[in-house]
Simulated assay, not measured.
Amino acid sequence: MKENSVQIRFKEDPVLLDKILQDMQKSLMNRLKWLNYAFGRAYKLVEHRPDGNKFIYPAMYNGNGEYVSLLPNDNFGNFSWFDIYDPQKITEVVQSLPQYTFSGAIIFWYDLSSIYEDETVMHTEEVKDEIMRVLTTPGLITTTGKLVINDIYERFENIYKGYSIEKIYNNYTYKGEGIQDIDKQFFMYPYAGIRIEFTLTTRELCQRYIL
C-alpha cells in the first residue's frame, strides 16, 4: 500500500489512552520535521501461510475494515507507531475517578539518508537524541497524564519484539516467504529504527454521565 492511500484519523473527543496518543502523534509530527507519518496504536495481526506457519506482524487500522502493515518498508517514508501492552492497570483513587497505567512502546523506522546527507558515518545517535528531546519536553501531553521512559532498544530483532521478525533473528525456525527480501532491503544502511518503551499514567478529569 502506497502512502497516498494511508489515512491518519483523529477522534474529535478522545479519552484516556486515545487522548494521550493523539497528543503525542501531533507533537511528533510538529517537532520532527523528517517524520512523514506518526501513526497511532498498532494491532497484532496473524497471517496464516500455506505451509502452516503463522506470521505475526503489527498493523494500523486504516478505516473501513482495512489494516496496513507496519513492518519495515519504504512506502511511508519515515514513520512511527505505538505498541501497547496488556494488561492495563487500574488504581482506585478515593473521591476521584480511577487511575489508569499503560505500558507500551513507540517505534520509529526511518531512512537515514533522508535526514542526513553525510553517508560516511551512521547518524543514529543524533536521531535518538532528537526523538528523546521531543518525548521529554514539558507539555507533550495536554491532558492529565505522565509519561516515563523506561528502556531503549536499537537492535532490529528488539525493535520488532513480540512479532515474527524477533523470532527469526533469535534462531526460531520459520519458512515464510519474503522474509529474506525484508532482511536484505531494510536491515542495513540507510534504514534504521529505535524502540522506546514507556509507562503512561492518566485519569479522566470528570465523570461522564449518561442521561
Rank of each mutant, 00 (worst) to 15 (best):
W81C: 02
Y163A: 05
L35Q: 03
L97M: 14
I149H: 11
D129K: 12
E157K: 15
H48Y: 09
K33W: 02
G178C: 09
M132Y: 01
N4A: 08
I84K: 03
I90H: 06
S69I: 10
L71N: 09
T201M: 12
N150G: 11
E125H: 13
I20F: 09
Y116K: 00
S103I: 02
D13S: 06
D18N: 10
Y61K: 06
K11I: 10
Q180Y: 11
S80D: 00
V127K: 01
Y153G: 09
Y67R: 00
Y116G: 00
W81K: 00
L28K: 07
S80I: 05
F10W: 04
S164F: 11
I106G: 05
N78V: 00
V94S: 07
E117K: 13
I90M: 06
M24C: 04
S103L: 09
L97D: 10
I149F: 05
S96N: 14
L200R: 01
V15S: 09
L147N: 10
G52E: 02
I159H: 04
D23M: 01
Q99D: 06
I115V: 08
I20D: 05
Y43S: 08
W109G: 03
Y174P: 01
Y174C: 15
S5Q: 15
L211H: 11
G52H: 04
D13P: 07
Y61A: 11
K146N: 04
Y191F: 14
S114L: 01
Q95K: 11
K167M: 15
Q22S: 04
L32E: 01
A105M: 09
K184Y: 09
L35F: 04
V121M: 12
T199D: 14
K146E: 10
C206T: 07
K128I: 02
T137F: 03
V134K: 03
I56P: 00
D181T: 13
I165V: 01
T202H: 07
L97H: 10
N62L: 04
C206R: 13
L45G: 06
L140N: 03
N64E: 08
R155W: 09
I159S: 00
T144H: 15
S5M: 14
K33P: 00
G52F: 01
I8Y: 07
L147D: 12
Y57L: 07
N36Q: 05
N78C: 01
D86W: 06
G139P: 08
P72S: 12
P138H: 03
N62T: 04
I179F: 15
N64D: 13
N30F: 05
I8Q: 12
Y169M: 12
H123T: 00
L17E: 13
E3L: 05
F76T: 01
G52L: 00
F108T: 02
N62P: 05
Y169E: 05
Y37I: 11
P14S: 08
M188Y: 05
N64G: 08
L211D: 09
A42C: 13
D23G: 02
M122K: 07
I20E: 04
G176F: 03
